[in-house]
Design a protein around this nucleic acid. Structure first.
Lengths: 325, 325
DNA sequence: TTGAAAGCGCTAACAA
DNA sequence: TTGTTAGCGCTTTCAA
């Protein structure tokens, strides 16, 4: 110790315990002088907090997630945390193996955007009750896990209402894999609103896979069965873009002949021409909120689970336009 | 120790030092029994290796990077490493602050895809000579840093040759920010090949920003100055997509009136209609190679810097088509 | 071949 | 208010 003391330094650095202004000054000076940097790993060992959180998602290549990841990292960074990225491909065994590794590394908390395991599994199997967890888009089943979601049901209805309002008279829906809550909610929102119409028919709802190709195929199938469809609400933007592609290939004009509305609000919706009308989730905000909530939990405030339901917004663009009749 | 020994366990786990088959068996059994999991943080403290690498990139929201990140994470994961994600926005101070944090955390190595600092800075300022580093897309200036790149110059010429071969007779180039080597190399490749033609003119090269809007504006500007351009080679896919958008807005048919070729091979090139012809880099492969090389360095083999130059490939799609004359 | 013990660098309880 | 010291859980000499 160039100055005088020993682990009073610790007190200075952590700003806890009693220290005289005087000695504090001294210590800080020496710290400065020596370019001293506390060793994070040692602190981790001693304090069981590493200033690291993990973000487990299905696949960072899926265009929805980079923006979320960016938000998570931004907020984490701002609070002095570092984030570990984990691609689970929605496979349970990958999630599990990540969790094991992460726990060994004294991770401080986890943000889950991957859907495989029920919360119960997580708790039971991995004893992460103690570990702060926040989830994106799934129902909370335990007390320690907060959830960030957005208004899928209401959003779906906004989409349908928008299509109705511009004059569509037969609206179909391409829905995502039913194992995702988001897909189910959006489907339900559509169905509820639409079932009262005379043109309603269950096979106006066709399954997709939340990807481009799924949207393309679903749209083809749809048009074969219902050539008179004049509006499509897709369960996410990727499938909507797929549908748009199919239209383009079949020589069907959008929005003149068929209007298309997506869901998510990913950046890609602005690259096509016409640009895609969509129900935009506050994607960045969702990631940022998740990180914020997680960090608050880690730091001890706000222990109980909460559900945050963010607003969605209709972004009207080229793939939908008022019909001139 | 439930079995018999003490830190022989360490030897067993790390498979080093002498241990009898017999005691090894015993130890393993107890490990199994107790569900013992070595504590990674403690190992980190003791051994100065944490099994964690960092991936510093400009922005994970930029569509080029998710696929790289995915590759890095896949390979890391396969080798028992965990990856920390860092968005630098190409700002030096962010890179620096990350490096500081990462060093404190005993990170084992860094993959750099961010371009701000010269290697010299990195070495001089942050003493990361000891730390294994591999860079994506930049010239190596020091001995310890390997570089992964792809054939930008040759790729640019493939693009131009392709446009020539389908009958384009006046080919423009939208180039990226000159501070990026990749942008400079692609520009050089274009220029070298094109300067011998009578139609060549320096203002056929217009600047873009590697983003969609930059491509859109550049294309507008270009067409104003040279309405007779019939081929555009953009420095990356995003700008090419921007150019495509501009064409679509101006009612110019692609590929009939103007052909467009991009560079990178990102997934987005398949969402538009027509789909974008592009010079595809092996994006995933680049990330995977970076991770592989880094891990090899970390593990001691292969200490010296190498340059890996990966092949690119022409992916012919809808935005270019043989002119019928 | 195995055990004892000294760290790795920091935090926190306990004395002083 | 500050110093001592015992861990945190593992690796690694050095002896035995």
């Amino acid at each position: 110790m160039a100055g005088v003391s020993v682990a009073t330094v610790s007190r200075v650095i952590n700003q806890n315990g009693y220290v005289t202004k005087d000695t504090e000054q001294k210590v800080r000076k020496v710290i400065e002088l020596l370019h001293y940097e506390p060793n994070a790993v040692a602190r981790g060992l001693a304090g069981k907090q590493t200033g690291t959180i993990a973000f487990i998602l299905p696949d960072i290549s899926n265009p929805f997630f980079p923006e979320v990841a960016r938000a998570v990292e931004d907020v984490a960074q701002a609070h002095g945390y570092t984030v570990i990225l984990c691609n689970s491909d929605d496979e349970g065994h990958k999630e599990r193996s990540y969790i094991e590794v992460l726990k060994k590394k004294y991770i401080d908390g986890i943000i889950f955007a991957s859907n495989t395991m029920g919360q119960e599994d997580m708790q039971k199997l991995y004893h992460i009750d103690d570990l702060p967890v926040v989830a994106l888009d799934r129902a909370p089943t335990n007390q320690t896990c907060s959830v960030i979601r957005s208004k899928n049901y209401a959003g779906a209805q906004m989409a349908v209402n928008h299509l109705l309002s511009i004059g569509c008279r037969k609206i179909a829906h391409i829905y995502g894999p039913p194992q995702f809550v988001t897909a189910r909610e959006r489907l339900a929102g559509y169905q509820e609103l639409v079932k009262k119409f005379p043109w309603y028919s269950p096979d106006l709802m066709v399954p997709g896979n939340f990807h481009l190709d799924g949207g393309m195929k679903a749209a083809e199938q749809l048009l074969r069965a219902h050539p008179d469809v004049d509006g499509i609400f897709a369960g996410n933007d990727l499938m909507a873009l797929g549908a748009l592609k199919t239209m383009s290939r079949l020589g069907i004009r959008v929005p003149e002949q068929i209007s298309i509305c997506g869901f998510d609000g990913i950046a890609l919706t602005a690259v096509t021409e016409p640009e895609l009308t969509t129900i935009a989730q506050p994607i960045y905000e969702m990631g940022a909120t998740a990180a914020r909530v997680l960090i608050e939990k880690i730091q001890g405030n706000d222990t109980n689970a909460q559900e945050y339901e963010l607003e969605v917004e209709l972004v009207e663009r080229g793939t939908t336009r008022k019909k001139v009749t």
